[in-house]
Design a binder for these strands. Structure first.
Lengths: 204, 204
DNA sequence: CCAGGACTGGACTTGCCGGTCCACTTTCAT
DNA sequence: ATGAAAGTGGACCGGCAAGTCCAGTCCTGG
């Protein structure tokens, strides 16, 4: 993978990835051709193959990486300070809003399915995103525990895993139904479970 | 959509759908051609188009319907009697086992992404499956409430929605990571939340 | 037994789309 | 300034897979 060595080249490469991401979100991987991407990014076939010698697969992989980065970036500010119940609800709102905006397109999900089997790289990208995301949530839960908002008995990693699963499921259900009800339900019950953990612990 | 009018015809149609489902699970929609399906089902192009005049899309839709049916069928016995904590854990085990077996293939997910945008029918199938599935879970929760294992204050529909979201997310994460940890975490914390609801209610 | 429709086989067409090629222009180091 | 390397444009190729066609064969009812 020959990295572009001039400023112009790097700009073109970036333009391709971002433009491709747009088109892919709009049309879905299955219905997007290199020509669509070429049109959108005002480039030519040779440029596409110049920057991505591995062809479409390599380009899709780059887009997947790009999109994966954005997922966390968008939540960064909220994920960074999950230290009070209010902050957890702010995060909740941010997640819901983010996915409501890009109504029924989960760029990563579809990208993964397209490249998935052939490229182990795609799996790695998604797996790594999940790992980081979950770690951030776990950090937030640990903060709560440090502040004694929840008891020490809470299984941090399992709670984080469950919460993440709820978000993923909420999003994927939203894609077929168009409604964010499940996403909200998952987030709300997940947070409430944490909040109620103290009560449960104290009673026993 | 001319339904086959002879026994032989119906058998062939069924063979096509079931065989196509197999191939699709094995290779993924993106990498499956009509010829693959033709080979597997020992049929010919003309038969494929005879039974599915709408071409590949129509066939994929039929497969989606078939797969959707199986999802609920497989859980039917457990979903039907969610009346004790033990039964909930049996259901949990059944779900985990089911998805661990078909390791990294969510037939519906990928089918949806392929046909999705073009055919509103695909959305409808998935949405309907979700609706029914959630309703079954909600029924189970209502049973618990009727037996006073959980307090009346529990929001049945929201809890069911959250649980379903957790399952969906757990499955989709499993597809990229290969691990069922998230699915288990989501199911376990979901059920535990129900169990602890009584404690929380009594304390307040 | 014999029409007529249901069903089957597979060769053929068609168009799309990933990928290649090469001629050309721009950039930049010396 | 100049030539090599980087970057760009777009015509072209070739294969693949969806979809068509028609010539059959097999049921079924009368």
């Amino acid at each position: 993978m020959p990295e572009a060595s001039t400023a112009k080249g790097r700009a073109t490469r970036a333009r391709i990835v971002e433009g491709a991401a747009e088109v892919l979100r709009e049309q879905g991987v299955a219905f997007t051709t290199l020509d669509d991407i070429r049109d959108r990014t005002r480039t030519s076939k040779s440029q596409l193959f110049h920057y991505f010698p591995g062809g479409k697969d390599e380009l899709l992989l780059a887009v997947a990486e790009f999109e994966a980065g954005r997922v966390l970036e968008d939540q960064q500010p909220h994920l960074d300070c999950l230290d009070s119940w209010e902050s957890w609800y702010r995060w909740r709102d941010a997640v819901v809003e983010r996915y409501e905006l890009q109504n029924d397109q989960c760029p990563l999900g579809s990208l993964f399915l397209q490249v998935g089997r052939s490229e182990p790289g795609a799996r790695a990208i998604v797996a790594e995103l999940m790992r980081q995301w979950q770690e951030r949530i776990a950090d937030g839960i640990r903060t709560l525990r440090a502040r004694e908002l929840i008891p020490a008995s809470v299984d941090v990693d399992r709670s984080a895993a469950a919460l993440l699963a709820g978000v993923q499921g909420g999003v994927s259900i939203m894609m077929s139904t168009g409604s964010s009800a499940h996403l909200k339900a998952a987030l709300d019950t997940g947070i409430e479970q944490l909040r109620s953990a103290k009560a449960v612990a104290e009673r026993s």
